[in-house]
């Protein structure tokens, strides 16, 4: 579970989100080496949810028909990206909430949006910079909590038996 979460939180897997933020769109093109890296299919996700599929023809034939494995790979890559987004979306509510709370707590005037944005940005930057250590720290807390819980429940068990 933790490994899976760690994998999803790894920014290499967040290319879809990164491109959406930076460029407003994300392109995934699958090519084939057999045809000198000719594209077979392109899928573009836009920031407003729209999607564009492009199929390439060669001599009036759909190239993708001859490469079913490539198509499978293309689709599974897209699924993986969207799953990553789902996990991110699940966590963002709490994440943004905590950051906003900290920002409004630390800024002298609660309604100063620019200041709030700056502090929030600083927290995100710190979070990204120390993400490895923060993650380890969180895991340590989680382990400690789990250990205490099992010790307690173990004690209870011995009491009842």
């Amino acid at each position: 579970m933790i490994k899976k979460l760690k994998k999803y939180l790894d920014f290499r897997y967040l290319s879809l989100l990164r491109d959406l933020i930076r460029k407003g769109q994300y392109n995934l093109t699958t090519t084939t080496e057999e045809l000198e890296n000719h594209p077979l299919i392109t899928t573009t996700f836009y920031f407003d949810g729209d999607v564009l599929n492009i199929f390439y023809l060669k001599n009036e034939e759909f190239l993708i028909e001859d490469f079913p494995a490539k198509l499978q790979e293309h689709q599974s890559k897209l699924k993986q990206k969207i799953e990553t987004m789902d996990v991110f979306a699940d966590h963002i509510t709490g994440f943004i909430g905590v950051l906003s709370m900290l920002a409004s707590f630390l800024t002298p005037t609660g309604d100063n949006s620019l200041m709030q944005l700056g502090v929030t940005g600083a927290f995100i930057a710190i979070g990204l910079f120390f993400k490895k250590y923060i993650f380890r720290f969180l895991i340590a807390i989680f382990r400690f909590g789990a250990k205490m819980y099992y010790r307690k429940s173990g004690e209870k068990k011995t009491e009842t038996t």
Binding site: N53, I64, I82, M85, T93
Partner: peptide, 23 residues
């Protein structure tokens, strides 16, 4: 593929809505 992409798009759209909601 269009059908499959439509299903993918709906989950992609749902994620976008969830992110916007989170913000």
């Amino acid at each position: 593929i269009h059908d499959e992409q439509t299903n993918l798009s709906v989950s992609y759209w749902k994620s976008l809505i969830d992110i916007a909601k989170g913000i």
